[in-house]
Amino acid sequence: MGFDKIDEFLRKKGAVEVIVEIGSGSATYQNINEAVLASSSTVSNRLNEAVQNELIEVTHRPTDYGTQKRYTLTDSGKRIYDWVLDIDLEKKIRELRRVQRDRDNKMDQLLDYVNRDTVLLKTYSGPERRLSDEELKRMSDHHHSGETAPDEMWEQRRHDNLHAALIRRDSDKDDS
């Protein structure tokens, strides 16, 4: 494999992460896919490209249920992994993964708060579907008590809000 191919491969999303995840041992597709912050198709593509470029090899190990496909680094892959370790890139990749997962968790938490925020719901529900004071109180009580309101109520609220937004958008277009 030429240097251009190595360079091209390593610049692709998830490529170095795949090598880091395999490291000095071996890993299954599931292990790699869970660890690499990329889509499953991207991970699959990087694994196939790394095999084609002779950076990793596939082995099959017997299990109680058949065989298990495992990925290990070739000598060339190990040289790249050694460089990753020498420049502390592995540590940065793992930090980035942790930060990204923390960010995703905080984003989920934010969206949960926004979806349960009665002021926002009242403000953005539109005149077609104003929340009654009773609905607001029930939603607020659930939010502040730490209880989770029934999913159906939130799904209906999201549906109603989306429907109201579409009606407003269509009426705005008609006014133009």
Results as ranks from 00 to 15, higher is better:
Met1Ile: 00
Phe3Tyr: 04
Asp4Trp: 08
Lys5Val: 01
Glu8Phe: 09
Glu8Val: 03
Phe9Val: 01
Phe9Ala: 00
Phe9Ser: 00
Lys12Trp: 02
Lys13Pro: 06
Lys13Cys: 07
Gly14Gln: 08
Val16Ile: 14
Val16Thr: 13
Ile19Lys: 02
Val20Ser: 07
Val20Phe: 02
Val20Leu: 08
Gly23Ser: 09
Gly23Tyr: 08
Ser24Gln: 08
Thr28Met: 02
Thr28His: 02
Thr28Arg: 06
Thr28Gly: 08
Tyr29Ser: 00
Gln30Asn: 07
Asn33Thr: 06
Glu34Ile: 00
Ser40Arg: 11
Ser41Cys: 02
Thr42Asn: 05
Val43Asp: 09
Ser44Trp: 02
Ser44Arg: 07
Ser44Val: 02
Asn45Glu: 13
Leu47Arg: 03
Ala50Trp: 00
Val51Cys: 04
Ile56Gly: 02
Ile56Cys: 02
Val58Ser: 09
Arg61Ile: 12
Arg61Leu: 15
Thr63Asp: 12
Thr63Lys: 11
Thr67Asp: 14
Thr67His: 13
Gln68His: 09
Gln68Trp: 05
Lys69Trp: 01
Tyr71Arg: 00
Tyr71Pro: 03
Ser76Val: 03
Ser76Phe: 06
Ser76Arg: 14
Lys78Arg: 10
Arg79Trp: 06
Arg79Glu: 11
Asp82Trp: 07
Val84Leu: 02
Asp86Tyr: 09
Asp86Leu: 06
Asp86Val: 01
Ile87Gln: 03
Leu89Ser: 10
Leu89His: 08
Glu90Leu: 03
Glu90Arg: 12
Glu90Gly: 10
Lys91Val: 04
Ile93Phe: 07
Ile93Trp: 05
Arg94Glu: 14
Arg94Pro: 01
Glu95Gly: 03
Leu96Asp: 11
Arg97Gly: 07
Arg98Asn: 14
Arg98Asp: 14
Val99Glu: 13
Val99Lys: 15
Gln100Lys: 13
Arg101Cys: 01
Arg101Phe: 06
Arg101Leu: 11
Arg103Phe: 13
Arg103Cys: 10
Asp104Val: 03
Asp104Ile: 11
Asn105Tyr: 07
Lys106Asn: 08
Met107Gly: 01
Met107Phe: 11
Asp112Phe: 11
Tyr113Lys: 07
Tyr113Val: 06
Arg116Leu: 09
Arg116Asp: 05
Arg116Ala: 05
Asp117Ala: 08
Asp117Gln: 05
Thr118Val: 14
Val119Gln: 09
Leu120Val: 04
Leu121Gln: 05
Thr123Cys: 04
Ser125Met: 01
Gly126Gln: 03
Pro127Asn: 07
Arg129Ile: 10
Arg130Leu: 13
Arg130Pro: 12
Leu131Ser: 04
Leu136Ser: 05
Leu136Met: 09
Met139Leu: 14
Ser140Pro: 04
Ser140His: 15
Asp141Ser: 12
His142Val: 03
Ser145Gln: 06
Gly146Phe: 02
Ala149Ile: 14
Pro150Trp: 07
Pro150Cys: 06
Glu152Gln: 11
Glu155Trp: 06
Gln156Glu: 13
Gln156Ile: 02
Gln156Gly: 03
Arg157Gln: 11
Arg157Thr: 11
Arg158Thr: 04
His159Glu: 15
Asn161Glu: 15
Ala165Val: 01
Leu166Asn: 15
Leu166Ser: 14
Ile167Phe: 12
Ile167Ser: 10
Ile167Leu: 12
Arg169Lys: 14
Arg169Met: 10
Asp174Glu: 15
Asp175Lys: 15
Asp175Val: 10
Asp175Met: 15
